[in-house]
């Protein structure tokens, strides 16, 4: 039992399970899946489908956080990638031409990689703290997205582009397959190559990693680029979903939801060990929460309150001081200096 409880997926899965259980009691048909016109429909499918962009962003964010970093600019990259692809397509003669759509997707993804590279270079080359370095793109990024679309909300009529976000394959939404591919790629890249080991090593102890001969700068830049790429793909999904690009609102709050998903998934904000599967569960939990609140009939905006408490709860559980605080209550005397010094020693 203890071993099960210590597994990194125990808490995220329990929370997700509890949410699903609540839904089961609240509306028994929550889990029903219908077949209609060759497509599967149902709440569970919706959760996977609507949760897809968040999962993508969160997967990239997991790796960044594992290196002791953070990427605040993912929401902006989502908007930029959507704007870039929509702009490219809208300029074309035949919006539905396959080559045009592919070019648009390619351009958007390359741009996302470049933005990731920018973040990575600021962190490694200029030695700026990640939270500050990525803040720059977070602020400027939305402006860039609007610059690309010239401030308009671009609407497309391109079924081929719309397929990315709304199409279905083998009765399931196509977006689920995209997520599956990216998730599998991330897992393979980190578990089958040595990248995962290096990421965890650099995130846990950068100094010792350097002395063991790891080129941490390259690892860190790669991770920010991957995170940018993930956000770019998420941007394509979101813009294709509504066949339009909105530089102002696309991907709004995604950075925060993604960080939340990562933290719920058991990856510590202090870097080190990371859990892609935990992140997946975390992102699904956030999406389920939204769906649940929607199906219960509460205003979706109130999700924020619940999220606030989840963030706090997870961080307090992860905080060593919080756990110790309970024990410390029984201690009769304590020396504040002693605490401090051992912390800094």
């Amino acid at each position: 039992m203890n071993r099960i409880m210590k597994h990194h997926l125990f808490w995220p899965l329990t929370m997700l399970g509890a949410l699903l259980l609540f839904n089961l009691f609240h509306s028994p048909d929550f889990f029903s899946i219908k077949m209609q016109g060759g497509h599967l429909y149902g709440n569970m499918i919706d959760i996977l489908n609507f949760g897809a962009p968040l999962i993508l962003v969160a997967v990239g964010m997991t790796l960044v956080i594992a290196t002791k970093g953070i990427d605040l600019s993912v929401g902006s990259i989502v908007a930029i990638a959507g704007a870039m692809s929509c702009m490219t397509i809208s300029k074309g003669e035949d919006q539905n031409s396959l080559s045009l759509v592919l070019m648009a997707v390619g351009l958007a993804l390359v741009l996302s990689l470049v933005l990731g590279l920018w973040n990575g270079l600021l962190v490694t080359g200029a030695g700026i703290q990640p939270i500050i370095a990525t803040l720059i793109l977070m602020v400027a990024g939305r402006g860039i997205a609007q610059l690309i679309t010239d401030g308009q909300i671009i609407t497309l009529s391109s079924p081929k582009y719309a397929y990315i976000g709304t199409g279905s394959l083998a009765t399931l939404p196509f977006s689920i397959f995209i997520v599956a591919v990216v998730f599998a790629a991330a897992s393979l890249l980190t578990r089958k190559s040595a990248l995962g080991l290096f990421i965890e090593s650099v995130g846990t102890n950068p100094q010792a990693s350097r002395l063991a001969g790891i080129r941490s700068n390259i690892v860190i830049v790669a991770v920010y680029m991957f995170c940018g790429l993930c956000a770019g793909i998420a941007g394509l999904l979101l813009s294709s979903n509504v066949s339009s690009a909105d530089g102002n609102n696309a991907g709004l709050w995604y950075e925060l939801d993604a960080i939340l998903a990562v933290v719920i998934g058991g990856t510590s904000l202090n870097g080190g060990r990371f859990y892609l599967s935990g992140t997946l569960v975390g992102a699904l939990m956030i999406q389920t929460l939204s769906t649940t609140i929607y199906s219960v009939g509460i205003a979706p905006e109130i999700t924020l309150v619940v999220k606030a408490f989840v963030v706090l709860a997870v961080c307090l559980i992860q905080s060593e001081s919080f756990r110790k605080a309970v024990i410390r209550r029984w201690k009769t005397r304590h020396y504040p200096g002693e605490k401090e010094v051992t912390r800094h020693a």
């Binding site: 953070i70 939270i131 925060l256 960080i259 933290v263 904000l269 924020l304 309150v305 999220k307 606030a308 408490f309 963030v311 706090l312 961080c315 307090l316 905080s319 060593e320 001081s321 919080f322 605080a325």
Partner: peptide, 15 residues
């Protein structure tokens, strides 16, 4: 509880 200000105020922002 020595939680990063970033994350605590993020929760505050949501709340």
């Amino acid at each position: 509880f020595k939680v990063q200000p970033f994350i605590v105020t993020l929760a505050g922002m949501f709340l």
